[in-house]
């Protein structure tokens, strides 16, 4: 079964702003990463999938249903986690998620049970009885995820789930999303502007830019690693570049920085070894996440 299929999907807002232009894409169940810069049309696409916005042109199907005509049935089977703050501060997480479960059509006692289940699955235990206003950003994101899960959807739409989280929080959230997609058997569409982040957990990657499809493929088909290591040495940049090239590492240059694609942890050792052998003063060595724009700059010509 095709999870989401769009055909020449176009959305133009009043005033001539084109959010989606002739978007045709079909994805299979699994974890799907939807990447694009801010304003690329990700949120518009999600709202069309939910049947909240009507497309200007083209066709769309979600779980085999048409959200433009059958939006209630689509929304009954989809869970949505919005990007922005969406929690009333004076309610407790347990109350809020229970209430939203009832709005999804769960009977009262079932809603209460599933709410505590969902909160437990996202890692909130005793704190679920405290008002949401006192929660950290990470906990609030978890509550937003729990309310999307409470009615046992077949598809989760997550809009920037890692927004505002620190690196540890990001990793925890991504691990959770991965678990939902694999262990829970729920398909997930994750929106992000950070490619390096979503590609770690996704089976399929859909990249859009200015409402146009750049690329949609299984992640295994896009084997090239997109994480790079940035190396900066105070002197001897040329020598190091030559040494790394001799070690079969494809080295790129960017000003004073050397960019080395990160294959696995061994890449670190190779670089550190080379720096140590040449006895160079290492200024910095860090992993750099590819911004989507960079992927587009390198991928687009080959795609076109």
């Amino acid at each position: 079964m095709t999870l989401i299929a769009t055909e020449s999907l176009t959305k133009t807002y009043g005033g001539g702003v084109t959010a989606l232009a002739d978007l045709t894409v079909a994805v299979e169940p699994g974890i799907i990463g939807l990447v694009g810069a801010n304003g690329a049309g990700k949120s518009t696409l999600i709202k069309i999938l939910l049947g909240l916005l009507a497309p200007t042109g083209g066709r769309v199907r979600v779980l085999g249903l048409d959200p433009t005509t059958d939006s209630a049935r689509v929304r009954a089977r989809v869970g949505y986690m919005p990007e922005h703050d969406a929690l009333p501060p004076d309610l407790s997480a347990a109350e809020l998620v229970t209430h939203l479960g009832r709005i999804s059509g769960l009977p009262r006692t079932v809603a209460r049970e599933r709410a505590s289940e969902a909160l437990r699955h996202v890692g909130l235990y005793e704190e679920r009885y405290r008002p949401v206003g006192g929660y950290s950003t990470g906990m609030k994101q978890r509550v937003k995820l729990a309310q999307a899960l409470v009615h046992d959807p077949d598809l989760l739409l997550l809009d920037e789930p890692t927004n505002g989280l620190d690196p540890a929080g990001r990793d925890a959230m991504l691990a959770l999303v991965h678990r939902i997609g694999t262990e829970f058997g729920i398909s997930v569409l994750v929106c992000s502007h950070l490619l390096g982040e979503v590609e770690r957990i996704c089976d399929t990657l859909v990249a859009i830019d200015s409402g146009r499809l750049l690329r949609a493929d299984r992640i295994s088909a896009m084997t090239s690693a997109t994480d790079v290591l940035a190396v900066e040495v105070s002197e001897g940049t040329e020598e190091l570049a030559a040494r790394l090239a001799a070690l079969q590492l494809p080295v790129g240059r960017e000003g004073r920085l050397l960019l080395v694609p990160l294959a696995d942890d061994a890449t670190y050792d190779l670089i550190l070894g080379a720096v140590a052998e040449l006895d160079l003063p290492l200024h910095r060595l860090d992993q750099r996440r590819h911004r989507v724009a960079e992927l587009f700059a390198t991928k687009e010509p080959s795609h076109a």
Binding site: L50, R75, P82, H84, A86, P89, L100, I103, S104, H151
Partner: peptide
């Protein structure tokens, strides 16, 4: 007003509620 301010409305309208 409370629902408008806290942004909780998308959570209602993404459900089957007309």
């Amino acid at each position: 007003s409370r629902d408008l301010r806290s942004g909780v409305l998308p959570l209602y309208f993404s459900r089957p509620l007309p």
